[in-house]
């Protein structure tokens, strides 16, 4: 089974406080810690586990710039066989459809049985996988939290639906699946593993290599554009308890007693 996993390097929200810049329209990006988008990492682990059982290889691809190579190398250190960077100035400012259009062109240059994405990235878009599937006319399932390979070019996949229930589906290959976190336990990547792939050459493809019409992607092709970031005027919000630790605890205990949380 030839598997392609689409990944992205994103600011790590568990490590960062996101702040507005002084102009108030962008976030402060200078000190952000970046990492692999967490659901994408689960997708790569799942691909590795499927390839280990069913044979084949795993390719990780990202649309971005030179800085994004580090996440490709990280996933290669996990065990992905190939990393591919898709990069072109013409791709800057692409919306979800633009990214999906670029990925479609890449997919059509190869032969992939299964394409995985993470369910969503830091912008909560949850869109590229479903768009890519529609552009390719492949079947699609989102929020996938288990995959089993069946005979006859099919998979059995479960989707996470409400209340912890799981929706079981059979899906034809080739297909696109967007992977939910928790589907597996991604393996640990040590420094040694990263060093081993540090000098592997990562091929880069641009718009002309892929035959992508630059006018259909990037800023020019985007129907959806982020105008600015802002911090909304909040409602009442929480009363933040102030004072020494002891004062805070005493105050909290009083409040919990009053609200029925402590008898």
């Amino acid at each position: 089974m030839e598997i392609l996993v689409c990944v992205r390097r994103v600011p790590d929200t568990s490590e960062n406080e996101i702040q507005l810049n002084s102009a108030g329209n962008e976030i402060e990006r200078d000190d952000l810690v970046y990492s692999i988008n967490e659901p994408d990492n689960y997708a790569v682990e799942e691909a590795l586990q499927i390839a280990a059982k069913a044979g084949g290889s795993v390719t990780v691809v990202t649309v971005g710039g030179d800085d994004d190579e580090e996440v490709l190398r990280r996933e290669m250190a996990m065990g992905a066989n190939h990393g591919v960077l898709i990069s072109d100035e013409a791709f800057n400012g692409s919306d979800g459809k633009g990214i999906a259009t670029i990925l479609k062109a890449f997919v059509q240059k190869g032969h992939y049985d299964l394409i995985l994405t993470g369910i969503q990235a830091e912008d909560g878009g949850a869109q590229v996988g479903g768009m890519l599937a529609a552009l390719l006319d492949y079947p699609f399932a989102s929020l996938v939290n288990s995959i089993a390979v069946l005979d006859g070019g099919k998979l059995k996949v479960s989707r996470e639906i409400e209340g912890g229930n799981r929706e079981m589906n059979e899906i034809d290959l080739p297909c696109v699946l967007s992977i939910q976190t928790g589907i597996n336990e991604p393996r640990y990547v040590g420094m040694r593993g990263i060093r081993q792939v540090a000098s592997v050459e990562i091929p880069t493809f641009g718009a002309s290599d892929l035959g992508v019409d630059a006018g259909a992607v990037g800023e020019a092709g985007a129907k959806v554009k982020r105008v600015d970031y802002f911090v909304p005027a909040l409602g009442k919000g929480a009363e933040i308890l102030q004072g020494s630790r002891e004062e805070i605890i005493d105050k909290l205990i009083e409040l919990m007693k009053a609200k029925g949380g402590l008898n």
Binding site: P11, N16, E17, I27, F230, V231
Partner: peptide
């Protein structure tokens, strides 16, 4: 975006 840490206007 960013898990609800910040809001954005989108056109």
């Amino acid at each position: 975006e960013f898990g609800g840490q910040i809001s954005a206007h989108v056109r």
